[in-house]
Simulated assay, not measured.
Amino acid sequence: VGVDPLVQNLMVSSPVTVESWQPLAHARQLMLMHSFSFLPVRLGDAWCLVSELGLAKYLKGGEGNDRWSESIATARSRGMELREIADDELLRPGMNANDVLARASVRDGPMLWLVVDDRRPDYLAGVLSPFELM
């Protein structure tokens, strides 16, 4: 109560991310340690989400444990499914959180919004989930 319903006031401002060069084993370890369903990663000019389902499907498709040491970028180029976030889906810190919630549609599975800096869309300022909006 008493807090402006702005994204910047409700977001997690120290997001855990994975880098495109880091191995899948590292991404999985972060997901397990923090009970995350998604990890943000910047690939080229786009923000993407590594999902636990995409990671599991890709790892099970390999022979033995040969895929654990692949980088996120390599795995994507070899068919690992990632959710690419369109620029118009990215949030900005000054947005009204009530408007974000009103525009959202219910989807299968968990939801995670990425919040980027107004001046530097390649910089992840935070993440926001429906949990923070309750």
Results as ranks from 00 to 15, higher is better:
residue 77 S to K: 12
residue 62 G to C: 14
residue 65 N to L: 14
residue 52 E to N: 06
residue 75 A to K: 02
residue 31 M to C: 00
residue 71 S to E: 01
residue 28 R to L: 05
residue 50 V to H: 01
residue 56 A to K: 15
residue 49 L to S: 10
residue 63 E to P: 02
residue 69 S to M: 11
residue 65 N to E: 09
residue 66 D to A: 15
residue 73 A to D: 00
residue 52 E to Y: 03
residue 24 L to K: 05
residue 30 L to C: 12
residue 68 W to Q: 07
residue 53 L to F: 06
residue 48 C to N: 07
residue 70 E to I: 04
residue 79 G to C: 11
residue 43 L to S: 12
residue 78 R to M: 03
residue 27 A to F: 04
residue 72 I to E: 00
residue 46 A to T: 14
residue 75 A to E: 08
residue 38 F to G: 05
residue 25 A to Y: 08
residue 62 G to R: 13
residue 62 G to L: 06
residue 27 A to L: 06
residue 69 S to A: 15
residue 44 G to T: 06
residue 33 M to K: 13
residue 72 I to G: 00
residue 47 W to S: 06
residue 73 A to Y: 02
residue 39 L to M: 04
residue 31 M to D: 01
residue 42 R to P: 00
residue 44 G to N: 04
residue 50 V to L: 03
residue 58 Y to I: 03
residue 29 Q to K: 07
residue 71 S to P: 09
residue 25 A to T: 13
residue 47 W to E: 05
residue 79 G to H: 11
residue 63 E to R: 15
residue 59 L to E: 02
residue 65 N to P: 02
residue 34 H to S: 15
residue 51 S to T: 08
residue 26 H to K: 09
residue 36 F to N: 08
residue 51 S to A: 11
residue 59 L to V: 05
residue 66 D to Q: 11
residue 52 E to A: 09
residue 64 G to A: 09
residue 48 C to F: 04
residue 57 K to H: 12
residue 51 S to G: 08
residue 77 S to D: 07
residue 27 A to M: 10
residue 44 G to C: 11
residue 78 R to C: 02
residue 75 A to L: 13
residue 45 D to N: 14
residue 75 A to F: 06
residue 48 C to Y: 00
residue 48 C to K: 02
residue 55 L to Y: 01
residue 28 R to Y: 01
residue 43 L to Q: 04
residue 71 S to A: 04
residue 39 L to F: 00
residue 72 I to P: 01
residue 74 T to C: 13
residue 76 R to T: 13
residue 73 A to N: 03
residue 75 A to H: 02
residue 76 R to N: 13
residue 73 A to Q: 05
residue 66 D to N: 14
residue 73 A to K: 04
residue 36 F to T: 13
residue 63 E to D: 15
residue 64 G to Q: 12
